[in-house]
């Protein structure tokens, strides 16, 4: 184990790339969960991985291939007649089958598959960093515009869904984010960062604002832990990242109990909430 590796300038760009994604993916995951589309991340990730491998065979730059494949996956999701977990599971199966078929039949794709499935964050460069910053920046802009309409559609569906342009913009930014993330962190680590923090805070955070912050903190702490562990033990980032997200989410403080106590104090004088 060489602790100096953590501070090696060679790994600064990869660290920053992952850091941006570790901030963005938990936020994206919260909004996907809000829309009941958490499984869509994995479906889009698998389709994007197949597209990225296909792009590698055609000689496209890897990051560009991933982003384009992610956008195409988002369009596939957008085009679903009946969006549902079943449809996302079908996307997942289709993407996995296509990715394995491409990987098994072309040496260039086999090489790229290492990055997609293992999560070879340590071999990423300036292109990955720029793409991660772009999806983060555009994603935040889209959410600033879409946030209120997306939450309102959940609690007051009778007021109508967000307009079509807003929904398409969100789907495209989600697809591009997934496409960029899988080429840096790997498919399952990207999915874990989008799924697990949102899952953990959805049932426990006392407000949406706190849910956002807490999901980001879980994502960041887990990412740094996964990065260091993978580097020190010379492992691909993917499995270390997934294990770290699960561990950090499991150890995260029991926020719900605090929120319950507060609600209990409020209600001490009269009608009160369901403290199950």
């Amino acid at each position: 184990m060489n602790l100096d590796l953590i501070f090696d300038p060679l790994f600064r760009l990869p660290f920053l790339t992952g850091l941006l994604l570790a901030v963005w993916l938990p936020v994206l995951g919260l909004y996907l969960r809000l829309r009941g589309e958490w499984l869509a991340v994995l479906g889009m990730a698998q389709l994007a991985s197949a597209g990225a491998l296909g792009g590698a065979v055609l000689g496209l730059p890897v990051v560009a291939g991933g982003a384009v494949a992610g956008l195409l996956a988002a369009l596939a999701k957008w085009g679903l007649k009946r969006p549902s977990d079943s449809a996302y599971a079908a996307m997942l199966l289709l993407g996995w089958a296509a990715a394995v078929a491409v990987m098994s039949n072309h040496p260039l794709a086999e090489q790229a598959a290492g990055a997609v499935f293992d999560g070879q964050l340590y071999f990423t460069g300036g292109g990955h960093l720029a793409a991660s910053a772009a999806v983060l920046g555009i994603g935040v802009l889209v959410l600033v515009r879409a946030h209120r309409a997306m939450l309102r559609a959940r609690v007051h569906p009778a007021l109508g869904p967000p307009d079509a342009a807003t929904r398409l913009a969100f789907d495209l930014v989600a697809g591009a984010s997934v496409g960029v993330a899988i080429l840096s962190l790997g498919v399952m680590a990207s999915f874990a960062l989008a799924f697990v923090p949102a899952w953990r805070v959805f049932g426990t955070a006392p407000s949406w604002r706190s849910a956002l912050w807490r999901a980001i903190v879980i994502g960041l702490v887990a990412y740094v832990l996964g990065f260091v562990v993978a580097l020190l033990f010379d492992q691909p980032f993917g499995p270390a990242g997934v294990a770290a997200v699960l561990l950090v989410a499991r150890l995260a403080p029991p926020w719900r109990q605090r929120a319950d106590r507060r609600a209990g104090a409020l209600s001490a004088g009269g009608e009160i909430g369901k403290l199950d």
Partner: peptide, 24 residues
């Protein structure tokens, strides 16, 4: 503005009352 008969979507959602009012 439309208040639907059934309260849906609030279960397992990290949203407080103040945020609900802000949405509309």
């Amino acid at each position: 503005g439309h208040l639907a008969q059934a309260a849906e979507g609030q279960a397992e959602l990290p949203l407080c009352g103040r945020e609900l009012l802000a949405l509309t």
